[in-house]
Design a protein around this nucleic acid. Structure first.
Length: 265
DNA sequence: GTGATAACCTGCTCGC
DNA sequence: TGCGAGCAGGTTATCA
């Protein structure tokens, strides 16, 4: 599922292919989540940015095309023949000789066209981007302290920090030795957690992201980070730090994997 | 305002 | 072999 490293990998791959290009004839799957594709038709892309897990395509007329890839989304520039008849195509724009294609099997992704900077929903309420150097440990700790929810729940809410999903939340909590259900985090723990978040995200970015099932980068290739995970998806296997069997629990209807020895509640 | 929960959605895996 | 149930999870909507 695309989290920050996967979205950033896609952004880097797409930027040279779409910036300066005009989005030609649009097509959208008939669902409100994708019909904004038509609003971007005819606009020229002037820039491509990312905030958390959102891709932001700046348009020449002062608007932005906001793309969230959901769990199974991908955005690629492809030859027209490659997208023809694709049952999972959710939106597309004709470029000069190719097609900018938004593909999403489970339809958890969405599109929106907004005035530049006028965001709504999670994009408006989320915290600083996880790789934004302006967020320091003090600010992160205060943001965590502001809520009494479990620390992993807070990470997934995107409010203290943006860009962390289930995979990297498990990985960072394991690295910082913080229990996912912990509701109060000390300043040193918050500092360690912020450092761990940045370490796991940076490492994954260097590996082209994590591919579990669906994720593909802008070139249609899988990431390589899934072979380097220490915690996520390893329930029942020994902890790489202490050999204790990793345990899986359900937190907010999602699986949280942790080491019961290293990550004390 | 905050927190908890359900719903959305479809491919895959597992058990019968 | 084929079928059905359960699982995966990011975001939004709804309710307490």
């Amino acid at each position: 599922m695309p989290e920050l490293p996967e979205v950033e990998t896609i952004r880097r791959g797409l930027e040279p292919l779409v910036v300066g290009r005009r989005l030609g004839t649009a097509w959208a799957f008939p669902h409100p989540k994708f019909e904004a594709a038509y609003e971007a038709e005819g606009a020229t892309v002037t820039g491509m940015a990312r905030r958390g897990k959102y891709l932001l395509l700046a348009l020449h007329d002062g608007h932005e095309l906001v793309v969230h890839l959901g769990m199974t989304g991908s955005l690629q520039v492809q030859p027209p023949a490659a997208v023809r008849g694709d049952p999972y195509l959710r939106a597309s724009w004709q470029l000069r000789t190719s097609v900018l294609a938004f593909r999403d099997v489970r339809r958890f992704g969405r599109l929106a066209v907004v005035k530049r900077g006028e965001y709504t929903g999670t994009l408006a309420t989320q915290g600083p981007d996880a790789l934004d150097g302006d967020l320091d440990a003090e600010g992160f700790w205060l943001a965590l302290k502001a809520s009494r929810r479990a620390v992993k729940t807070q990470l997934l809410s995107q409010r203290p920090i943006a860009g962390v999903g289930n995979i990297y939340a498990d990985e960072a909590l394991w690295m910082a030795q913080v229990h996912p259900r912990r509701k109060t985090v000390s300043k040193p723990q918050a500092t360690a957690l912020l450092d761990a978040i940045r370490q796991v995200l940076t490492a994954s970015l260097g590996n082209g992201g994590t591919t579990l099932r669906d994720y593909r980068n802008a070139d249609g290739e899988s990431g390589r980070n899934q072979d380097r995970l220490s915690c996520y998806g390893r329930a029942g296997l020994p902890c790489r730090r202490c050999d204790t069997e990793l345990r899986a629990i359900t937190l907010d209807a999602r699986t949280a994997t942790f080491c019961p020895t290293c990550q004390k509640r």
